[in-house]
Design a protein around this nucleic acid. Structure first.
Lengths: 331, 331
DNA sequence: CATATTATTGTTACACGTAACATTAACATA
DNA sequence: TATGTTAATGTTACGTGTAACAATAATATG
């Protein structure tokens, strides 16, 4: 009953040639004679032929699809990474298959297997620690892989990102320079990058003889969470005079909570975030934050992957991109 | 040189059975004898076998992949839609292929063709107007299609969304009720949904005997744009006492600009946004906005698509979800 | 013990576009 | 006219997992 969609053979039959001739037309119209070009074009139109990549993928395993595996698709950070990736791959004629693993290693394994089962030509993934099973899969699959977000070393093949630990160290140091002493760190999610940032923060505090203090949760960050954390800290450590948050969301939440509570920022408490989203750079007061090159990470990852798909060798194993300390008005 | 990744045949050879037996094991381990189960498991492990969906897609054209086509992948609205979709399809064992078309119809055609060339089992798309070519493609492909975002009528098959025009009408009406008379509309992008909202706004103004005024641009919205628009309007229409923005970004940008310029919100100017993102519901003052069920749209679209993939008929052609007027503190 | 039944594994064919090679037709040149 | 060259189209084979059917072995039943 449900007629299947037309194949090349159907088109060829309508024209009265073999499917190979139609295939040639599709690849490059000038490979067939001009009268045939017209008739084939008409037949394609009449039947509404839609190309089918499956047989080609099967016989030469080039899918022209690349897999992008991220912890989350909603987090704004990763949205911007995706924009960077798509900006390169879409014009290059590659289809991106996005997957997310919700920060779970098990899920990461399953997602990579799925992407590979669709014969993606390359992978962009976003953690630097991987289980042995994942490493084996990537090796066996033999597709180029790029790890993004942290400039981790040594990478499986190639890594592109920032030095999260150094970035957190720098911002903490900057806050101390600005006169904040009792600086508390607000952490959420507790993923790999957050752990690195905590390390940087703690090191910076200790280097100045100060005592680090971390408020943590494994759940996702949000504006509300920033506010909740602030209340908690003010209750337990009323002399806190600085808050460094693992991302802008927490920072903005904390800042609004201060405004509501009548606490002056930055006079009474200095607040800093991480990433430098648009909102942080438009709000009043401007948020102090670490500006990270999220879109560029995506763009570069895609460009390097593309280069390797074109047969070029790895150019640079680790690409460490610069971050920037934005002073804002909240410190 | 580059050893290709192992096939079922390689695994079968190692065990000393036919690939059919291994295929059975993969589908349901109990279909093969227990001693074989162990040996197959070992062989799979040794070789690091990765399933290959291509042949199956080719022979029965069920890919267990669904295509999601959105105007933009970075816009927070669509991020949340994606979350809703993935929340359903991921546990159901479907891989989503995301694509975006940057609000261009040409690109929409190309992207749909690409998704179909990978034999997606179903499509979620996000415009209600489509070219004839697109309609033909969808018809020929014979896969279930769901249109999301606006509760448009009549849909190709099924549409899920909100009534954008009614929502804009309701908010405009609410602003007028609150005493704002010279309400200006800030529009960006000028996509289908924005046009509907403008229509609702204009109708509401006219119904109250007021003159609608729209500030427009085809470029993307941003916080900065909201600020720019505000300056412009204050120069040209200094007696403006209300601003209704096509999304929260513009509204927040305008609100911050007011704060910087010393204009009191809502006393001098009332400001309203659209969508009700987290930030709008956390900021000071709370933004008046239309709360839209973005994630639910994604979730419902996925659930209905899944139901149809399981062979069920269309249950309801148009699903019109409720929006909510959030009064906030900015009106 | 013979036949029926079930459990387990094997065989064959298929999906469809394209690379590689083969053929035919058309034209040019000596 | 015979041979060489090019242009245009055709033929064949291939990739890999699985449905459908076939065959065999093992067990049960009368």
């Amino acid at each position: 009953m449900k007629k299947k969609r037309p194949t090349l053979q159907d088109v060829a039959d309508l024209v009265g040639v073999t499917k190979m001739t139609v295939s040639r037309y599709l690849k490059n119209a000038d490979l067939v004679s001009s009268p045939l070009q017209i008739r084939i074009r008409e037949a394609l139109d009449t039947l509404g032929y839609i190309p089918n990549r499956a047989p080609d993928i099967l016989s030469n395993s080039k899918s022209h699809a690349i897999g992008v595996l991220l912890p989350s698709l909603t987090n704004q950070v990763f949205s911007e990474v995706i924009r960077g990736v798509e900006g390169v791959f879409e014009p290059a004629g590659y289809q991106t298959m996005l997957a997310h693993y919700g920060y779970s290693r098990e899920s990461e394994e399953a997602r990579i297997a799925t992407l590979l089962s669709y014969n993606v030509d390359g992978l962009i993934i976003s953690e630097s620690f991987h289980t042995d099973r994942v490493r084996k899969m990537l090796e066996v699959a033999g597709v180029p892989v790029i790890e993004i977000m942290d400039s981790v070393s040594p990478p499986i093949e190639q890594a592109i990102g920032i030095d999260n630990e150094a970035a957190a160290y720098a911002m903490t140091h900057f806050m101390i320079e600005k006169g904040h002493r009792k600086v508390v760190y607000f952490a959420a999610r507790m993923d790999e990058r957050t752990l690195l940032k905590i390390k940087g923060y703690e090191r910076a505090m200790q280097d100045q003889g100060l005592t680090p203090l971390c408020v943590k949760t494994t759940s996702a960050s949000s504006f509300t969470l920033g506010a909740t954390f602030l209340e908690e800290v003010l209750k337990q450590q009323p002399d806190t005079d600085g808050i460094f948050c693992t991302n802008d969301d927490l920072a903005i939440g904390a800042l609004y909570a201060c405004q509501k509570a009548g606490i002056k920022v930055p006079e009474q408490i200095g607040i800093a975030g991480f990433h430098g989203h648009d909102i942080s750079r438009a709000m009043v007061p401007l948020l102090a934050t670490v500006i990270t090159p999220r879109e560029e990470i995506g763009r570069l990852a895609a460009e390097h992957l593309l280069s390797r798909l074109q047969g070029n060798p790895i150019q640079q194993r680790v690409i460490d991109l610069p971050f920037k300390i934005e002073a804002g008005e909240s410190l």
